[in-house]
Design a protein around this nucleic acid. Structure first.
Length: 562
RNA sequence: UGCCUCAUGGUGUAAUUGGCAACACGUCUGACUCUGGAUCAGAAGAGUCCAGGUUCGAGACCUGGUGAGGCAGCCA
């Protein structure tokens, strides 16, 4: 391996305290120039944006330091884990572009080795089988200020421990009857060192091991071993494991095996949503949302379905940075990341969400094909033709009979430009019996055709439209934040479910889109001009019915003021 | 109450051996514009939780407070 102290890639990335530690390790040659990270999810739910931050962090470091990145499932608890979650996690990590090559591992594949090591600790007199019940163990663990009490089983002979542990493994005992504990220090100020449990009896079927085992390693016992086995150099995890580090260190030192360096960082919190898997699962189970990938969820699969790009998520992960203090990140940062990306790559298109019919009274009964630019940010994306005719639809909100000051769209007697077409003038308003405007009669000025430069006429506003006889009907789903408050799960009295936003989903069925979108495919992303970015939904779209999800709105400096 | 960790504009992060607070988002102006978008130009906004100390000099170091988060699962 080359003598690459700090690679160019790593030097060009924004610094954070973890990269600084690694830079230092490279200088001191602590790991012989190697960097090996991993992402170790438990397959008990779908991945969310917080996991995405961790994935990007770990993969980004491995990539920049020319190291390796593993995906490893921490599947040590058969009662909560499922294959469906394994599959979704693999899909999400791949989608994010984090390349684990062929290194996809399972903690459960290490059970044999862990069991062997447990026996080694027993033989050293560093672990013992305890007969105490869960309640007894809890009672004897002590409190914040008092030390715990040692179990009567603590000083069993090695032979007896070996025998009992063997029986545990062979299914002689029922769930909870015995546990294997590390023999450390019942008086430690760190609870994790008060003889933590290494194995519990669980007569349960494991999603990959079947019924091979009836004892399962606890996370605390297993996790460090998994990292050690995979020769991980930097075990990056979240803050809540800080207190566990001395325990992992203890196991690794007792076993005298490869000892990764654990580094803890603050998990991502986003306002107006929740990030705990337990709460997300509840939202799914209780049908507050349509599933883990409901576009209102903060899961990776939901962002994907909603139209986010992997690039935007990666960019977001970089923007928010890495530190040790708890933080609440503003959702505006995420919205910025996706707008920035889509602005450059999404094709522009015209769609009328809430149609208002207009008739161009002086336009002939014919159809004209007009040129429209696909993306003004990227002219190489070309142009397309859009049909223009005598009967059109514009947005209801683009006409006001009694406009407020500063409104510069269509008003009675006023003029506005139809994008890529002509300037029209509102001549007559047609209302129904309820006094609602249902149709507008307008005239157009043939001299003002877009692109001809034949008119010097200026208007304040430009409005999008579709041709009535050519437009395609579509369903559009508008999403708002799932919760009405910034931190729904931090209220002392109220449950987070009480803060659910009743208007987080609005379904529009009468939307009319320009005909060029007729053959759009699930996953295709567009900018509906003047509205925002939309993506063809992959779940509800059928052959005869297009359904769009609004990914994010355009910034709106007018709407904000009014 | 014990242990661990953290504390910088509204939000998220910077400030390499102590040298006079930077960047991004957001907000607000203005310019431009056939998207009230994008782009461009600019502005406001913190004196770094508090109090001492070391130093010519502290956001960085020391001491003591205060505040926040985590830990008493056979969850991870």
């Amino acid at each position: 391996m080359e003598d690459n102290k700090i690679t160019e890639d790593s030097a060009n990335k924004p610094k954070n305290f973890i990269r600084e530690i690694i830079d230092e390790d490279m200088k001191t040659n602590k790991w012989q120039g190697k960097v090996h990270t991993r992402f170790p999810p438990e397959p008990n739910g779908y991945l969310h944006i917080g996991h995405a931050k961790s994935i990007c962090l770990n993969y980004g470091i491995a990539k920049d330091y020319k190291g390796k990145f593993n995906l490893r499932f921490d599947d040590t608890n058969p009662s909560k884990e499922e294959q469906e979650y394994v599959d979704s996690i693999i899909e999400d990590v791949k989608w994010l572009g984090s390349d684990f090559e062929n290194r996809i591992f399972f903690a459960s594949d290490y059970f044999e080795q862990m069991h062997y090591w447990a026996i080694e600790l027993i033989k050293k007199g560093a672990a013992y089988v305890d007969d105490a019940s869960a309640d007894e163990i809890r009672e004897n663990r002590g409190t914040l200020t008092e030390p715990g009490k040692e179990s009567p089983c603590r000083n069993r002979s090695v032979e007896q421990n070996l025998d009992l542990f063997e029986k545990m493994k062979n299914g002689v005992f029922k769930n909870g009857e015995k546990v294997l504990r590390a023999k450390i220090d019942m008086a430690s100020p760190n609870f994790n060192l008060r003889d933590p449990i290494m194995y519990r009896i669980l007569h349960a079927e494991h999603h990959r091991q079947g019924n091979k085992w009836c004892i399962y390693p606890t996370y605390d016992w297993a996790h460090g071993l998994e990292d050690s086995l995979e020769k991980i150099t930097h075990s990056i995890c979240t803050l809540e494991f800080e207190n566990h580090r001395p325990l992992y260190d203890w196991f690794l030192d007792e076993l005298n095996i490869h000892h990764p360096q654990q580094i803890e960082f603050a998990r991502l919190n986003l306002n107006y949503t929740v990030m705990s898997k337990r709460k997300l699962l509840l939202l799914v189970q209780e049908k507050y949302v349509d599933g883990w990938d409901d576009p209102r969820m903060p899961t990776i699969s939901a962002f994907r379905r909603r139209g986010f790009t992997p690039e935007s998520i990666r960019n977001f992960a970089e923007i928010v940075g890495v530190a040790k203090r708890d933080a609440m990140t503003d959702i505006a940062l995420l919205e910025f990341a996706i707008r920035e990306d889509l602005n450059h790559c999404a094709q522009r298109v015209m769609a009328v969400l809430r149609p208002l019919k207009i008739i161009i009274t002086n336009y002939p009964d014919s159809v004209e094909e007009l040129d429209a630019v696909n993306n003004p940010e990227d002219l190489s994306m070309g142009t397309r033709k859009i049909p223009f005719s005598r009967e059109l639809f514009i947005e209801q909100t683009d006409f006001m009979e009694l406009p407020p000051k500063g409104y510069h769209r269509l008003v009675p007697g006023g003029e506005v430009r139809l994008r890529y077409a002509y300037i029209i003038k509102c001549e007559e308003i047609i209302k129904n019996d309820n006094g609602e405007v249902i149709e507008l009669h307008c005239t157009y000025d043939p001299e003002t055709k877009s692109g001809t430069g034949s008119s010097n006429k200026k208007v304040k506003g430009t409005v999008h439209w579709v041709s009535a006889s050519h437009a395609v009907n579509a369903e559009v789903r508008l999403y708002d934040r799932l919760f009405t408050v910034e931190a729904p799960d931090s209220d002392k009295e109220k449950d987070f479910l009480e803060f659910i936003n009743p208007n987080s989903l609005e379904i529009l069925t009468g939307t009319l889109i320009e005909p060029s979108l007729k053959n759009a495919k699930p996953g295709d992303r567009f900018q509906f001009e003047r509205h925002g970015y939309f993506c063809v939904d992959s779940k509800f779209t059928k052959n005869e019915k297009l359904v769009f999800n609004r990914t994010v709105t355009l910034k709106d400096s007018w709407g904000k003021k009014n």
